[in-house]
Design a protein around this nucleic acid. Structure first.
Lengths: 399, 399
DNA sequence: AGGCTTAAATTATGTCGTCATTTAAGTGTC
DNA sequence: GACACTTAAATGACGACATAATTTAAGCCT
């Protein structure tokens, strides 16, 4: 509704942005490719491109093949124009990664967290130490870092400074951005980890090319990232996509959020294992952590009808949850990710079928349901794309 | 992602659009008000405004009060610049309304439908006859009609021509737009009736000013319209917001859509009455139609514990459904509408409380839950805003 | 070598918004 | 009732941009 005012300069910025985005996501391309895909005139493209080359943002990369006529020059984003830091603040560790502008991983470092006692200041310290460590290792000057993206497993409220609510870490309204900003001048971008993972899949994984997609993440917790019209949907206070705590079984199992019948209380890894233990009459499920307990269940399903039934029910619940996403968001694509979903990949056909039973026909037929491509570790990669996305949206100009 | 190319002319169109939109929604305003709210320079505003006045789109409307200094001229949208037709295609009637550019109702006409046998051609005929009738009554030339907006109770797939799926009418992939376009040259805009009702509430009712809102509609059926970032969220094939058929009670009551446990199977008017009948041991609920049956229930609740319990349960189910919307969409505002919700207005506090139990705290606290302001008949008004919205988005230029 | 094709750079033209300045139209005061 | 003061609106100079038409560059083919 409230459109920002447009001036002649914003014309150039928009065209730069469109052109850079195209080059970033689909490059290398020739000037002629850009003429076709952006709709700009040929001199317009040449003009913008010459600026970008002069600024070191774009580089020519050899000539394209030609069968008669002057060969086009290939253009690509200059990989060393800038560098990105991506951070994954999980429940058990802080992982910091450094990428060049082509999103190639240059260095990474990990700091374990004590889940029992996760102090915000400790996490902020790890992030700051990690930035120093990865830039040091790769020999990159911090002034060449475009920005730091941080994916946190919790609700992130955007505002003047991002504030994090993470019940799993025992955080309530933690001003994480301010804590980190106290130790660095680099631009910070903080977002929910599920959303950054969705962002990574959107640019480099199963979401490529989609304009409307939902990334459904199943791990210990359950969440979703919604992409609408090509951009992450955040809602009024950035907490949109809290799929795990939608009611699926009214009055059903107690969820750790306090409510009853949440989806997470049925298909979260912890809940699946709990349901298996109950089906076994209360006998503990072998395995030293959730991941190995879940594997125990999966292996048992080959021979045990009880284990099989727990998995089948899981697929049915998950399918109903996916059907809700399809009915409400009408996406082209639903991408299932998270470590538990990946472990349960064999359930995909059953999930599709269950979703088909519960969703309306028309939106269900429009949507494909697939598995993620990048794995769980893409949270940091996706976080690192946040500064890039902001840079591209600004037309390729540092603030 | 795919930004349209920008030229100097698109700058003007954007600024015209922003200015016109402001004037349309918040007018009358002075040039100075527009300088402040659009961010354009004062000569810029004057320049654009003088174009708009010359084109007859905007008119001066007297001087504002002044205490020293030259008084500002008030500017307002010229009410007779263009006219709009809004159509409500319901399950029992087709209603056609004519508005001037200030959205004042000038004429209306209604055609009853036989629900048993609703032929698409018949509906199209009513729409065309209605356009002639209302323009004739009001003495408006059809060439002065900017466009025709049509709200249909069913899923509307946008494409080259809009196609309607409406199980209640027995319609499957009905090319309604083509049928109507065969009889008129006026620009057509077809959308789901819940979405047009949401649009009306957004511009003139309980949604004003919100950027993220969900309009939850409870009548015989249950649906929702989602507004994200100020614009109706449609999803990949325009069927987003099918709230009524999300699963709330896994494995629960049979829904007319074929699935089990849908929200509509609990809080749709038909379902509420069914649940009351069952609570009464199968005795029929007095009343000749759903509306009067529902009123019977509401009146009975004053003295009957059984009726009271049915209503309380309804509020609890509805609250859980609203909580799901809050968790997934994180709106600033949830607006309850539809004739059944209006009849059940007394349940609002209980719905709020139930939603608070099921939703996550952070998004719940960000959201207000209120009743609609415009009533059920605003479907046609909202439909009539569709051509306006498109006109404003184009910068106030007819295609 | 000369014709042909395609790519990229140049030049001329017109649109647009902003800044600085001027003109218009009121109120208040002595 | 003239004069200062204030705010609104119009004018003119200027620079940023994209486009169209034209020119130059760089390859292939016979």
């Amino acid at each position: 509704m409230e459109l920002a005012r447009a001036t002649n300069r914003s014309v150039r910025l928009r065209n730069r942005g469109a052109l850079l985005t195209k080059l970033f996501l689909d490059g290398p391309l020739t000037r002629q490719d850009l003429v076709r895909s952006t709709g700009l005139s040929q001199p317009g493209v040449s003009n913008v491109v010459s600026d970008l080359i002069e600024e070191g943002l774009v580089a020519e990369a050899g000539a394209a093949e030609s069968d008669g006529g002057r060969p086009s020059m290939m253009l690509r984003i200059a990989p060393r124009f800038a560098f990105l830091v991506g951070v994954d603040v999980g429940e058990t560790r802080v992982r910091v990664e450094l990428f060049d502008f082509a999103m190639t991983l240059l260095a990474s470092v990990e700091y374990p967290l004590d889940p029992a006692r996760t102090e915000p200041a400790e996490v902020a310290g790890h992030v700051l130490a990690g930035i120093d460590a990865v830039t040091g290792t790769a020999g990159v000057s911090p002034t060449d870092v475009l920005g730091v993206g941080i994916g946190v497993s919790g609700v992130v409220s955007q505002g003047e400074h991002a504030v994090v609510h993470a019940q799993a870490l025992g955080w309530d309204a933690v001003p994480l951005e301010r804590l980190i900003a106290a130790g660095t001048d680099l631009p910070l971008h903080i977002d929910n980890g599920a959303k950054t993972l969705g962002q990574a899949e959107m640019w480099f994984g199963a979401g490529r090319g989609a304009r409307h997609a939902v990334f459904a993440l199943v791990g210990s917790g359950v969440g979703a990232a919604v992409v609408a019209g090509g951009a992450t949907y955040r809602g009024a206070s950035s907490s949109a996509g809290e799929w795990g705590h939608t009611t699926l079984v009214y009055g059903g199992r107690q969820c750790r959020c306090g409510a009853r019948g949440c989806l997470e209380a049925y298909v979260g890894a912890e809940a699946i294992i709990d349901r298996y233990r109950e089906a076994l009459g209360g006998r503990p499920v072998p395995g030293e952590d959730e991941e190995s307990q879940l594997n125990t269940l999966i292996e048992a399903a080959a021979g045990s009808a009880i284990a099989r039934r727990v998995l089948d029910e899981t697929a049915a619940y998950l399918g109903a949850g996916v059907a809700n996403l399809i009915n409400l968001f009408n996406p082209e694509r639903v991408v299932l990710g998270g470590w538990a979903a990946m472990a349960l990949a064999e359930l995909l056909p059953a999930v599709r079928e269950a979703a088909g039973r519960q969703a309306l026909r028309q939106p269900y037929e429009q949507a494909s349901i697939e598995l993620c491509r990048l794995g769980v570790d893409a949270v940091a990669l996706g976080a690192a794309t946040l500064p890039v996305a902001s840079f591209l949206a600004d037309g390729g100009v540092r603030r």
